[in-house]
């Protein structure tokens, strides 16, 4: 029994490496977008961003599972099933969401005005939008409620939980893909 347990090397080091990379990447890209939106002219055009930044935000969060599985397979030079890859990816995604949440809160302490500037600019953008006055008021009111809720402890925890579920799921899938690429036996 002990021999069987020792056969599977510990994967937590790989999980945290994958999680840190994803958390730092998503946090940096998210902050760049926030600064852009907080500093832009309050119009609909500020929501329409172009260039390299917008497309790269897509998929960044998905690569944690692949990175962690690759690190695990290469470090120990082993092959394993997709289920193991899914598990490593799942833990990587959850850890990435937690780390990303902590980094986000730390940045809020460094620059507390950022979220207020972002909120004000978004509200100004909606005030300039061409829509019926009643709908505009309702939208702005709901947006302000949402933003206030997101600042509260409950809102922060809810955000981290949503991200943990979503990143956990997509990284479990990318972990399976990683297992097929880096850890599948040759004959497969």
């Amino acid at each position: 029994m002990d021999d069987q347990l020792q056969e599977t090397p510990n994967y937590w080091n790989s999980v945290f490496i994958g999680a840190f990379i994803v958390a730092i990447a998503t946090t940096i890209v998210g902050l760049i977008m926030l600064y852009y939106l907080a500093g832009a002219e309050p119009s609909m055009s500020m929501m329409i961003m172009s260039g390299l930044l917008v497309p790269v935000t897509c998929l960044v969060g998905m690569f944690g599972g692949i990175i962690a599985v690759r690190h695990y397979a290469k470090t120990f030079d082993i092959t394993f099933k997709m289920g193991t890859g899914a598990l490593i990816g799942l833990f990587t995604g959850i850890a990435a969401a937690l780390i990303s949440g902590i980094l986000g809160q730390l940045w809020n302490m460094i620059d507390p005005a950022l979220m207020d500037n972002f909120s004000n600019n978004m509200i100004s953008a909606f005030e300039n939008m061409d829509m019926p006055a009643a709908q505009r008021e309702e939208t702005i009111s709901r947006m302000m409620e949402n933003m206030e809720a997101q600042k509260a402890i409950g809102g922060i925890i809810k955000g981290v939980l949503i991200n943990a579920v979503v990143l956990g799921v997509v990284n479990a899938i990318s972990g399976m893909i990683g297992a097929k690429i880096f850890a599948a036996p040759d004959e497969e």
């Binding site: 998503t26 929501m47 917008v54 897509c58 998929l59 990303s100 955000g159 979503v166 997509v170």
Partner: peptide, 14 residues
């Protein structure tokens, strides 16, 4: 939108 906020830029124009 909250679900995919961390995964996609969600730009309406794209």
């Amino acid at each position: 939108y909250d679900v995919f906020r961390i995964l996609c830029h969600q730009d309406p124009a794209r």
